Every structure is written in structure tokens, then in C-alpha cells.
Simulated assay, not measured.
Amino acid sequence: MSTDTILVVGGTGNQGRAVIDRLTDLGIGDEIIALTRDASTTHAQATAELGAELVEGDLTEPETLRPHLERADKVWATINFWAVGYDAHIELGNNLGDAIETVGGLEHVVYSGAGDQQEETEVPHLHSHYVVSERLRETGVPYTALKPVYFMENWEPIGIEDGMLAFPLDEETHHHQTTYYDTARASAIALHNTDEFAGTAYTIASDLLTLDETAAVISDVTGQHVDPYHVPLEDAEAEFGEEFAVMCDHFINEGGHTSFEANIRRIERDFGFTPQTLEEYLRENGWEDGKDEPTHVPGWVKAMQ
């Protein structure tokens, strides 16, 4: 068992709780401390039930991070773009980088951003994740950039309506997908193996399907026929919001009809696990019995509520 103290920044969110669960399950980290603005919230208490110690701090106030960073040997972090928006996302990432530099002495930082995060893109959350990731790399602490693609959990709130799965992708576009679980597995393994993973970057992807193939998998699992509906890009903003519309436009017109550049076999080879297929995800999350309520509520949905 690792004797590291691991600070999880974003520990009360979907990804953070999955990371804590994986760390605990794999016996990685002697102490796991989860940063939260308010330890009394329902989400914070759910995190504590996973075995993490809750500590209060706020990325808008970098000085509140210092005592927790001083305790830590390693840090896993993510920042929810959907909850704060483009400018604040970058500001919070800069604050975290400043705090890490001020403390010094950390052994490893792992940041979970977004697939295809890059300097030259018109997709706001892909660009801001790139900026934050580069800021953390600049701290000089051994650093790993993980870049999860579209989460299968997003299908939960989108759901099936009138026998259709609606999404703004055309018939030709192949869509890389992953899960909180696979991202958490990769995160835990990277944190445990600093010598191997520091200085690396990985796009985390688990399955690659067109919208038609996605609908067919859902049909097989649920036993109910599901038709794909390719929402026209001109209608996507009204149905899914501006950010999703811009992202899907990027996939179709800039990505060569493939969402995200990813190598699933590389994940399997380097991290030593077989990523979940969409079918496995659906069966493990109750889709065989129908979905009256989503098992997971993604961050972009919470931000719109």
C-alpha cells in the first residue's frame, strides 16, 4: 500500500468521487484528503463516506489551499468548466498553479482536463483546459495530463425520448467516449506510478461509436428499439446549449468526422486495464431495466439547473 497523502481538488464532483473510490479500492494513498468549499453539503458528505478526509478551501482564495498542499505528497485535480465558465476556469487554474509553486515539494500533480484540449481551437472548454493544464505543467512539479473524452454518463440526462436518441452529430462522425470509472482508474494508476507517468499526457477513451451504433447498443441493452436522431447543427444550440453546439461543430467540420484524437489500445497497454465499452457501462448502470432517473448527473447539466 502506498503511504502517500493525496489531495483531491474537485473531490466532491463526479470525477473526484470516482478517483477517491478507485484510490481507496486499490489501496493507493495512506491518506486521501478532499478539498471542498463547504464540508456540510450533501456532495461533500458523500465524498467523506468514500473514506476521504474533507478539508475546506477555495480556489478563488489561493491562500486557503496552502495548508492542505503542505500536507500532501501528490495532487489530483480537475476544475469544472461548466460550473464557472471560460474566464473563471482559467483564473482558478492559475490560482492552483500559484499555490503549488508557493508551497513547493510536491511529488506529482495529475490534472484531468478534456480530450483535444489545445491552444488553437474555437471550443472554449477545450481551450481553457489547455491553458490550465499548461499552467500546472509550468509549476515544475512532476506532471501528468489526462484528457478524458465525452463521458458516457452524459447519455443519462440526454436519455431516450419517443424512441429516439438525439445528438448533434452527423451519420459519418465516430464519437470517442469514456467513463468516470476509466478516468479514475487511469488517475489512480498514474498517481501510484509517478516515475512511469510523470511527464506524460494521455487522452482517455474507452469506446468509439457513431450515433447510429450508440443507438443500436442502447437498443440491445434495453430491449427497446432506439432510433438515432442527428440534430442539425443549426438547432443544436437551442437544444444543448452553445458550448455543446460549438463542440459538435468542431467534431464534424474540424475533426475529420472523429470526435477527439485518441488511442484506446494505448490506454489498455500503458495503464494495464481494459476500458469499458458502452454496452458494459449501460449494463452496470441499470439501463437494462429502463431509466426513469439518471444514475449520474454530469457537471454541465448541474450548471444548467
Rank of each mutant, 00 (worst) to 15 (best):
H192N: 15
A34Q: 00
Q305Y: 10
H250M: 11
F244P: 06
V141Y: 03
Y181L: 12
F251C: 13
P142C: 03
E107S: 14
I20E: 04
D182I: 02
K291T: 13
T183K: 03
F197Y: 15
L92D: 00
H176V: 04
N14M: 08
N94W: 07
D249S: 14
Y130E: 07
A166P: 03
E120G: 00
E161T: 15
I90R: 01
H43N: 14
E156H: 11
G272Y: 10
Q117A: 13
A72F: 03
Y181Q: 14
H225M: 11
V301H: 06
A190W: 09
K302A: 04
T60K: 11
R185L: 14
Q224F: 08
I32E: 00
W82H: 13
Y143I: 00
A99Y: 06
Y229W: 12
D87K: 08
D249F: 08
A188G: 09
E156S: 12
G159Y: 13
Y181F: 11
N253A: 03
V9Y: 08
P148A: 09
P168Q: 09
P275A: 04
H89Q: 06
T12Y: 09
S259R: 03
H230T: 10
V8D: 10
A262F: 05
F240D: 08
V75E: 05
I33K: 01
L146C: 08
K74D: 09
N14V: 06
S259D: 00
Y143P: 01
G11K: 10
E279Q: 08
E196H: 15
I100N: 04
A190T: 05
Y86D: 14
D58S: 11
F81S: 06
S259N: 09
S206K: 07
